[in-house]
Amino acid sequence: MEDIHISGFKDEYMQPTVDFVEATGECCISGESFMEETGVFYSPLVEWVKAYAKRHQKIDFAFSLTYYNTSTSKWLLAILKELREMEKAGGQVAVTWHYTPDDTDMRDDIMDYMVDTGLKIDLVPFSE
């Protein structure tokens, strides 16, 4: 499987930066997310995680998004569900989520993702 490297941009649409590296198991989605076809962007990412989980035992996943719309939020849940499946199958899964310290709405949302998936997510505020 090939690593995924996508450069983000913030224009009329906002595309996050994605770096998924198979050799190290280090994966990161960062930036902002608002796009016309959310599924076209995110479904290959979900598929990558699924395929990765079949070959490896360890993953280190970091979310570093400052804004995502609700359409994106459904796909983030889909990724988290795959990570949870990997953990249930005995994998070592570490998930970190960076957020703006005063963004309590996003913090609530991340807490809700934990309830939904049963995954433990390390909440790390961005340092100012």
Partner: peptide, 21 residues
């Protein structure tokens, strides 16, 4: 928040998400 979790779960990755919005 519970309602949002429920609706997000039900929506899966289907396109229409106006209600979650």
């Amino acid at each position: 928040r519970e309602y949002r979790r429920e609706q997000r779960r039900l929506a899966g990755t289907k396109k229409n998400s106006g209600n979650i919005g």
